[in-house]
Amino acid sequence: MSDQKSKSMLKPLLEFGPVVLFFVAYLKLKDEVFQIAGTEYSGFILVTAGFVPLMVISTLALWKLTGHLSKMQIATLVLVVVFGGLSIWFNDERFFKMKPTMIYLLFGGILGVGLMRGQSYLKVVMEEALPMQQEGWMILTRRLCLFFFGLAVLNEAIWRTQSEETWVYFKTFGLTAAMFAFFMAQSRVFQTYGIEKEE
């Protein structure tokens, strides 16, 4: 197996592995209560305590593997550490459940600032992988900005009104499926404004 092929297989494993492990561990420990140093911790808090260092290790491994990290990956890691740490410190799962809200508000806000300046910050991140005319980038950025804000609102609605287990399923599968569906729905933009790479 070539070194390049090994890297291409390891990259998605490092990106999605921690989330999958969080989900599996939660299903096993969700109904358990653990007594540690005289304090009771739910299975959710214990799984979160395992997820935070795992996310740090996998992100560092991804950096070593690829030689770089995107600003999105760095921001996501910081918010995982901050909100996961707050949940563990205060023994309160609500902080960790707020984390996706903060991530999507941050990303949506950054794209929004760029739009107000007449720029597409999305283009800066994705132009090499997805060559497109400026007009196409502006359309896609406006839509993704609104989409991020919509996901932030949806996450708040889910964790505040639904059961913990429902939120875990939503975070693990719902958000990923929503992002995939969003980009699939933009196929018309890609076809209309896409630029074919020269050989």
Rank of each mutant, 00 (worst) to 15 (best):
M55I: 13
I57T: 00
S58K: 04
T59K: 06
T59F: 02
A61P: 08
W63V: 13
W63I: 09
W63K: 14
K64W: 06
L65G: 00
L65P: 06
T66N: 14
G67L: 02
L69D: 03
K71W: 15
K71V: 15
K71R: 15
K71A: 15
M72K: 15
M72E: 12
Q73D: 11
Q73L: 11
Q73N: 11
Q73H: 09
Q73G: 13
V80N: 12
V80S: 15
V81K: 13
V82P: 12
V82Y: 02
V82I: 14
F83V: 01
G84M: 12
G84P: 12
G84N: 13
G85E: 06
G85D: 04
L86W: 15
L86V: 12
L86C: 11
S87A: 08
I88W: 08
I88M: 04
I88G: 02
W89Q: 15
F90H: 15
N91I: 09
F95Y: 14
F95E: 08
F95R: 05
F95T: 10
K97D: 02
M98S: 06
M98T: 03
P100V: 04
P100S: 01
M102E: 11
I103E: 00
I103R: 03
Y104S: 08
Y104A: 08
L106M: 03
L106D: 06
F107D: 09
G108I: 01
I110Q: 01
L111W: 01
V113H: 05
L115G: 00
Q119I: 08
Q119F: 01
S120F: 03
L122D: 10
K123S: 05
K123Y: 06
K123I: 02
V124M: 11
V124A: 15
V125T: 13
V125G: 04
V125N: 07
V125L: 02
E127C: 03
E127A: 07
E127N: 09
E128P: 14
E128V: 13
A129S: 10
A129L: 05
L130R: 07
L130V: 07
P131S: 09
E135H: 02
E135N: 00
G136W: 07
W137R: 06
I139E: 10
L140G: 00
R143W: 11
L144N: 15
F147L: 05
F147K: 02
F147G: 03
F148E: 12
F148C: 15
F149S: 05
G150R: 13
G150C: 04
L151C: 05
L151K: 10
A152F: 00
V153P: 05
L154P: 03
N155E: 08
N155G: 07
N155K: 03
E156D: 12
E156V: 13
E156W: 14
E156T: 10
A157S: 09
I158N: 01
I158D: 00
Q162N: 07
Q162E: 10
Q162V: 01
Q162C: 11
S163G: 03
E164F: 08
E165M: 08
E165N: 05
T166C: 08
W167A: 10
W167K: 04
Y169R: 00
F170N: 01
F170H: 08
F170L: 05
K171F: 08
T172G: 11
F173V: 05
G174Y: 02
L175C: 10
L175G: 12
T176A: 14
A178N: 11
A178W: 09
M179K: 11
F180M: 12
F182K: 03
F183K: 13
F183V: 09
M184V: 14
Q186N: 04
Q186W: 00
S187N: 12
S187H: 10
R188Y: 13
V189I: 02
